[in-house]
C-alpha cells in the first residue's frame, strides 16, 4: 500500500515535471510565441474576412452570424493545432535537442509522460485561443448577446480529452520515423481539418467524408461551440455533441498510450531512440 502510494506520488511529480519543462521552454522561446501568436491572429483574420467578402460580392448572408461561425472555426482549429503540435513535438524536439534518451530512460510511465504534455498543451492552448478569439471579436465588433460561455468551456474541456488521445497516436510517428514522422503528423491533423466542418457544415461533404466526420471529435466540438455561442445552448441542449466526444475520449486516450508504447518498443528494437541533429 505504502509502495503504491510512493509510486503514485512519483508519477504526479513526474507529471508536474513535464508541465514544468514545457513552461520553461515557452518562457525561453517567448519571441517565437509572440511571432506564432501574431501569425495565428493574422491567419484567423484572413479567414473571418471571407464573411465580409461574401457580402461585398453581393451574397446575401447574416454577416454577424457568418463572421462568428468562421471565427469559431478558425480559433478551434488553432487550438487543435497547438494540442497536436505540442504532442508531436514531445518526441521531435527531444530528438533534435538530444534529450530523448534521458527522458526515455527515466522511471516515468509513458502515460505520465504523455498526459503531462497533454495537460500543458490544453492549458496553453486554451489561453492562446481565448486571446485570439477576444481580439478578433473585438476587431470586428462582434456581438454575441446569446452566448453561453460556460457551455463553451465544458465543450472544450470534453473535446480536449479526445484531442489529446488522438494527438498521442500522432506523437508516435516521429518516434518510428525520425525523418518523416512529424510531417505525417501534420497530414493527420489536415485530414481532421477537412472532415470536421471547420468552416462549413459537414453536410456539404461527400458521403465517405461525412462518415469520417462522425469519428472526428472536432465535428462535435465545433457544432456544440457554435450552438453555445450563437444560440446560447445549455450543456443539456448540446448533450448530443458531448456524449460522442466522451466515448471518443474514453477510447482514444488509452488507445493513444497503447499505440505510443508499441511505437516505443519498435524504436527500442530498431535503435531509433536516439538524437538526430
Amino acid at each position: 500500500m505504502r509502495e503504491a502510494a510512493g509510486t503514485m506520488r512519483s508519477e504526479f511529480i513526474g507529471l508536474y515535471g513535464m508541465v514544468e519543462r514545457n513552461w520553461y521552454l515557452i518562457k525561453r522561446y517567448a519571441w517565437w510565441e509572440i511571432a506564432f501568436f501574431f501569425w495565428t491572429a493574422a491567419n484567423t483574420l484572413t479567414i473571418v474576412f471571407i464573411a465580409k467578402g461574401v457580402e461585398a460580392t453581393g451574397g446575401k448572408v447574416d454577416i454577424d452570424q457568418l463572421t462568428t461561425i468562421l471565427l469559431i472555426g478558425a480559433v478551434m482549429w488553432s487550438y487543435l493545432g497547438i494540442v497536436f503540435e505540442l504532442l508531436i513535438e514531445t518526441v521531435a524536439w527531444e530528438r533534435w535537442e538530444g534529450t530523448i534518451e534521458y527522458t526515455f530512460m527515466a522511471p516515468l510511465t509513458r502515460a505520465t509522460h504523455l498526459l503531462g504534455t497533454g495537460i500543458f498543451a490544453i492549458g496553453y492552448g486554451i489561453v492562446r485561443a481565448s486571446i485570439v478569439f477576444v481580439a478578433i471579436a473585438a476587431f470586428f465588433g462582434l456581438h454575441m448577446p446569446n452566448a453561453n460561455f460556460a457551455t463553451a468551456l465544458v465543450l472544450i474541456a470534453v473535446a480536449s480529452v479526445s484531442f489529446v488521445g488522438i494527438g498521442m497516436m500522432t506523437a508516435v510517428l516521429p518516434l518510428i520515423s525520425p525523418e518523416k514522422g512529424t510531417q505525417f503528423g501534420y497530414v493527420a491533423q489536415g485530414l481532421m481539418l477537412v472532415v470536421s466542418g471547420v468552416y462549413y457544415p459537414v453536410t456539404v461533404l461527400p458521403a465517405f467524408m461525412q462518415w469520417l466526420a462522425k469519428i472526428s471529435p472536432a465535428t462535435y466540438a465545433l457544432r456544440g461551440e457554435r450552438s453555445a455561442i450563437l444560440d446560447g445552448a445549455t450543456v443539456s441542449q448540446v448533450w448530443g455533441d458531448i456524449w460522442p466526444m466522451v466515448i471518443i475520449g474514453v477510447i482514444s486516450v488509452p488507445l493513444g498510450i497503447w499505440v505510443f508504447r508499441r511505437g516505443e518498443l519498435h524504436a527500442k528494437r530498431h535503435g531509433k531512440l536516439k538524437r538526430s541533429g
Binding site: 512519483s10 511529480i13 513526474g14 508536474y16 534521458y102 527515466a106
Partner: peptide, 30 residues
C-alpha cells in the same frame, strides 16, 4: 541507473538549473 554520454544533451535555451529541475522530477524529486 543514470548516465553521462559524449554529448551533454540539454535543452540549449534552458538554464542548467531548469534542465536539472525537470530531469529530477522524472525521478520523483519534488
Amino acid at each position: 541507473v543514470n548516465r553521462v554520454s559524449v554529448e551533454a544533451s540539454f535543452f540549449k535555451k534552458m538554464s542548467s538549473e531548469e534542465n536539472l529541475a525537470y530531469a529530477a522530477r522524472f525521478y520523483g524529486m519534488p
